[in-house]
Amino acid sequence: MKQTTFTKKIAASLGAILFLTSAGIAASGTFPNMAASAAAKSSSSFLLFEQRVKQPSSLSLAQGTLVNRIDEMTPGEANIAVLHLENALKAYLPTAAKRMNTSAIQKDIKSIYTKGMPMVLARSKVKQLQTSMVLQDLSAMDYKLEYGGGSFYPVIQYQSFKVFKPYLTKDLQAYFELMAAESEQPSAVDGTLLIDWYKVAERALEYEAFLQTYQTSNRAAAVKEAFGVAKKYVFYGSPKTPLFDTKTQVMSEKAAIAYENTLSEAGPEQIEASTLLTQLDDFLVLLEKNGDTKTQAVSDYLKSLEVPGIP
């Protein structure tokens, strides 16, 4: 079978499992030239960043400090700073969402919103001063405007973290690539899958590849959580895009084709290297024996995978 772009991505992800080791995580040796030059510089930039990142009121200043002065930090400081920035954005996210979630602000944004509108553009178009102020604050912190479930809400704009890539260890480069992909194209919103079944499998395999390659990464736990959600989508779908028809319990034909092609294109060696692909292969064999229907035997197999089902 001719390799597609999708196949090549899967091969690359799984190839990492076979040929990379967690030794690639170590900062020492990752940036030899940078380490030599940064060691002679003061860490005042890092200290300034740390001072600013601790307070929501100066979070946008902390970002500016990191963007403009990360090259003045040691490799270790740069990695810690980027992680602390993500931590701060995550910590403030519930407050950011609460600030935006008032009927007046929601109505104001809805009156001017078009799909994919950047938060900074929305801020310039809204009519109420309070809405403008909230959006100004959140856009300065580099949150992204999203819509789902009948309301607008902020999310972390992981795409902007790519500017830090040259200063990060390999595991963090890979981590922020994964987070940016999910941020730019969410797997699901309001219980509906927004990606096709090929991408559903691909996302899960990319998370698996990360976990097997970077087992001791600082962000392994976060990726493990994302992998759990992605694996649920693979074997169950989502509440509004279920893998099995809610009436007939027959598996989605599109999903069956996508999964069969994924396995065919991966091949025996890559299937053996991936627990997820092995499970998917066994799953499809079982389904074939059961008329592609979710029988008790299929349900029992899914339970054995310890993947949480659809609520």
Rank of each mutant, 00 (worst) to 15 (best):
K231R: 08
S274L: 03
Y233L: 02
D196G: 08
E184Q: 12
E177V: 12
T114M: 06
D190M: 00
E288I: 02
G76T: 13
L93F: 04
L243R: 05
D282C: 11
I105C: 03
T262W: 11
Y113T: 12
A16G: 08
S274R: 04
F164V: 05
A273P: 06
K224T: 01
P186M: 01
P75N: 14
Y158C: 08
T293I: 09
A297F: 10
P308S: 06
A35D: 15
Y236G: 00
V307S: 03
Q157M: 03
K232W: 02
A78S: 15
Q212G: 03
L85S: 11
G291N: 08
N218I: 08
S274Q: 04
K90N: 11
M1V: 08
T278F: 08
E206H: 06
Q157P: 00
F283W: 03
D245F: 15
L287E: 15
L211H: 02
V250N: 14
Y147I: 02
L211R: 00
E184P: 04
K8Y: 13
L135W: 12
S252D: 15
Y92R: 14
N33T: 10
K125A: 13
V67N: 07
M119Y: 06
L287V: 09
S42I: 10
F46S: 15
S238M: 02
P242E: 15
A258D: 11
Y175G: 07
I156A: 11
K107Q: 14
A78R: 08
E272A: 09
T5Q: 03
Q51S: 09
V120L: 12
E50R: 05
E182N: 06
F31C: 10
I25S: 11
K90E: 15
A209N: 01
L243A: 09
T114E: 05
L138V: 07
Y113D: 11
S139T: 12
M119T: 01
Y259G: 07
A188Y: 14
